[in-house]
Design a protein around this nucleic acid. Structure first.
Lengths: 180, 180
DNA sequence: CGAAAAAAGTCAACATGGCTGACATAAACA
DNA sequence: TGTTTATGTCAGCCATGTTGACTTTTTTCG
């Protein structure tokens, strides 16, 4: 009785809940699973772009953040990614060697290496944000008028309380720089 | 001028936007980054529980799905996790060996191996859903009255269109079984 | 000035969790 | 009875994380 394909389409007569009320009283565990599936597909987008170039997810993350926050220090990137210097070093070297990222000594503190995307890096980064942005945009369309604010608040509140302020600062700083 | 700590707290006089309107007109790229940070912390929860036992994220995912959908076939799990039989096999063997998961031959098709959590596995799975559920619950609180419905729709619409129906069926099937 | 601390980089070794390819077994199906 | 399906397994490889030790350059501070 339990051994049927639990992913198969149901017999034709089965009906789903009306779209208008879908998810209204979904248990938390539903949202846990949706979050898992959503992220799986979300990171699948850049995977497809990177596979032909021989890069992976680690490269995606670095290119994204360097492009979004040009001039960031290596330490900043380490804090964001929460990986070790050695792990980052490997990926960063490949990106510099292949001309996606450039690292220059800091002006006021010459110990620092500030990271910038090259034009090649910018082009790649734009592809990432375009495809992921389209996915998010589609998702917001499914949420009605206040969807964007709701998604922003939901995702922000999913972050550890101690880190929220830093993340918001990071984001707002980048937005401001972009508008300038 | 660019080489300062981009994650540091700003000087005291800087003010953030009023909470009421936060995120209202956030660019899509903000949401991309928030999604990244949110998931990072979301999977950090089970990581902490698993580290002492010597298990990793792969084990978390298997225990979660087996517990939530008891009696699922190995093939179902492969479809959900999108990994190879060999990768799953390694993890599954460890979980069976250490008594977290049990696999029984299917009743109507004896080639199948149906997966069930042991009491030990259930206990562990409950810890995962509790801590992750608390995080989600907190996040929903930040979203106002229709937060749950909004989050459900947003996350569902983030999933590849082709997979949405299967995911919803999976979830609803599990909810129904749980209520029964 | 000189010592200490900070930013970055590097080497080596190892763990986890993906992957491919090849192959084996049992059960179901046509 | 032959083929397909569901599962499992061996062997090896790759990407990306980890720890620990150590170096170089530059800044900071007593």
């Amino acid at each position: 009785m339990a051994d049927i394909n639990i992913l198969a389409a149901p017999p034709a007569q089965a009906e789903r809940a009306a779209p208008a009320e879908r998810g209204e009283d979904a248990p938390l565990v539903d949202l846990i699973e949706l979050f898992f599936f959503a992220y799986r597909d979300f990171v699948g987008d850049p995977d497809e772009i990177l596979a032909p170039i021989g890069f992976g997810r680690a490269h995606h993350r670095v290119i994204h953040f360097v492009n979004r926050h040009p001039g960031m220090r290596v330490t900043d990137l380490l804090d964001i990614l929460r990986i070790t210097k050695q792990s980052l070093g490997r990926v960063l070297r490949e990106l510099v060697d292949e001309g996606f990222v450039e690292s220059r000594a800091g002006a006021s503190d010459r110990r620092q290496r500030l990271l910038f995307p090259t034009p090649k890096g910018e082009t790649l980064a734009r592809q990432f944000t375009e495809i992921q942005g389209r996915r998010i945009s589609r998702a917001l369309d499914a949420c009605g008028p206040n969807g964007r604010e709701g998604a922003y608040r939901f995702l922000l509140a999913m972050i550890n309380p101690d880190d929220r302020a830093a993340v918001e600062r990071l984001i707002q700083r980048a937005d401001k720089a972009r508008r300038a």
